[in-house]
Amino acid sequence: MTSRARIEHMDDHTGYLIIKVAGMAVPAFERALVPLGLNTRQVRVLGFLHGESLSQAELCARTGLDRTTMVAVLDELEQLGHATRERSKSDRRKHVVRITRNGKAAYAKATKKLLRAQEELLQPLAPAERAQLHTLLSRLFDASQACAPEPAAEAVS
């Protein structure tokens, strides 16, 4: 369907279908994480910390979470023993966030549960269709990131 075509029903609108599928995916992924005492925001942050230590500002930029939400997520991750925050030795204005050994283990368990939930969500699609969907969604996401304005540099993170 071209973008100029007349839409007779909402189900014919690609944007509507994206919203509806996202509306199915988010609760499924959240439910999958309940046994671990985690949520998707926490797992997203752990995923970005899995390979490196980052400042809170860098985490905000990479995850798309605002500063207030990031502070709350990091508070939760610290309480769970999955991450630590400390002042940067090179720049005392920054907080550096690190994943803990427990955080790495929790992330590994979470990704397994999320992959199972994803498998259930995508079950109606053949493997080649799943790969194609991933490729197309990645292209849309990458294009949106290329157009996104650079986050403002912040003195305090």
Score class of each variant (00 low, 15 high):
H9G: 08
D12I: 04
H13E: 10
H13S: 07
G15E: 03
G15C: 07
L17D: 06
I18S: 07
I19Q: 11
I19C: 09
K20Q: 15
K20P: 05
V21Y: 10
V21K: 11
A22C: 13
G23W: 06
G23V: 04
M24E: 15
A25R: 07
V26T: 12
P27Q: 13
F29R: 10
E30H: 12
R31Q: 13
L33D: 04
L38S: 00
N39H: 02
Q42Y: 02
R44E: 14
L46K: 05
G51T: 07
Q56M: 09
E58R: 08
L59H: 02
L59A: 04
C60E: 08
R62Q: 14
T63L: 09
G64K: 12
L65A: 12
D66V: 10
A72H: 13
L74H: 08
D75P: 09
L77V: 09
H82Q: 02
H82P: 01
A83I: 03
A83E: 01
T84S: 05
R85K: 09
S88D: 10
S90G: 04
S90T: 12
D91T: 06
R92E: 15
K94E: 14
H95P: 07
V96T: 14
V97I: 14
I99R: 05
T100A: 06
R101D: 15
N102K: 06
G103Q: 02
A106V: 01
A106P: 10
Y107S: 04
A110C: 08
A110M: 06
L114T: 14
L114V: 13
L115N: 15
L115V: 15
L115T: 15
A117I: 05
E119R: 10
E119S: 10
E120F: 01
L121A: 04
P124C: 03
A126Y: 04
P127S: 02
E129T: 06
Q132F: 11
L133S: 09
H134M: 09
R139M: 13
R139E: 13
F141Q: 08
F141Y: 14
F141L: 10
A143K: 02
S144I: 00
S144M: 06
S144V: 00
Q145L: 04
A146R: 00
C147A: 00
P149L: 08
E150V: 05
E150N: 03
P151A: 01
A152H: 08
A155C: 00
V156T: 02
